Amino acid sequence: MNLVRDRDKLQSTDKPTLYKQIRLDIERRILTGEWPPGYRIPFEHQLMTRYGCSRMTVSKALSELARADLIERRRRAGTFVSRPKFLSAVLHIPDIRAEITALGRSYGYQLILSARRAANAADRARLGVRKTGKVIAISCRHSADEVPFAIEDRLIDLDAVPEAATVDFAIDPPGTWLLHHVPWTEAEHAISAIVADEGCAAALDIAIGAPCLVIDRHTWRGGRTLTAVRLLYSGESHKLVARFKGG
């Protein structure tokens, strides 16, 4: 790409101020697919050379693009073209694998931990039951196009779902298996936000202190808890949507 030609082309126009011309030029490259989702945008000093302007001018243009959700600025990593945000409906239980593949992205799954044990007091409190026998504790990571998408921390009550004891969760994601094999009658979502600590940041490949979306969900069948799960997402790549009608 001829940097001098790009600079002269922008400066020869009478229309917007230079930072707006820079913003429009980058926006055009993104919207036409020349710079696809995930593409690393040139560093600020490279853009300064390309457009013959100050760092302040470049930064102002990038800030507007970031506010429009067209780019994502990552500390120490650089600036990237934003990927489409994932939308999860609040009023149904999504299958994470199906969510990702429906967007035409490659699904990845990694089982971190699967442990069968006698339920302890913390397990019973989390499931909301006074007593139960055994549980399966599962931790796993879901990814989209090899980028971490969600961390799942799940507890399954084996008294309520005994068939889960024979499932190989290294192959079958627990949420997908449950949705296809275990009917439920009631569910609850509790939605909150946290900032990533060192462990969360490493698991999701985000910066420490970055915003995270947390969904705590319980499902029941006939008043008996089936499973309790906590899902952790990067707040910059995921949002929830609910649509409903008045009576």
Rank of each mutant, 00 (worst) to 15 (best):
L111H: 09
A210Q: 08
G104I: 10
V161K: 01
M48T: 01
A77G: 06
R117K: 13
P162F: 00
P84M: 07
R50V: 14
T176H: 10
K134H: 15
I112L: 13
C212F: 03
L155R: 03
L226W: 02
D172S: 09
L213H: 09
A102G: 12
C140T: 10
R126D: 06
R105S: 05
W35E: 00
T225M: 07
Y39D: 03
A202D: 10
R117V: 11
A68S: 13
A66K: 15
S234K: 12
P84Y: 00
E188P: 02
L232M: 09
L127N: 10
A193D: 08
R224P: 09
W220D: 10
K15T: 11
G133Q: 03
L231I: 08
E146R: 13
R126I: 06
R67L: 14
A125Q: 09
F80D: 04
R105M: 10
S12L: 13
G235I: 07
A165V: 07
Y39V: 04
T49P: 06
R28G: 06
D145A: 01
R117E: 13
V58H: 01
T227L: 06
L111S: 06
E44G: 04
L87Q: 08
A98L: 13
I215V: 14
L226Y: 02
G52Y: 03
Y19T: 05
C212E: 00
A118V: 15
P84L: 09
C200E: 14
I194V: 14
L3F: 15
P183C: 06
E163A: 13
I156T: 07
V182L: 05
K20H: 11
L240E: 10
L62N: 02
A190L: 13
R105D: 08
R29S: 08
L10N: 04
A228S: 11
M56P: 11
A119Y: 02
H189E: 11
T166A: 13
L91W: 10
H45P: 07
R67T: 12
L179R: 03
I71A: 04
I71L: 09
I30D: 02
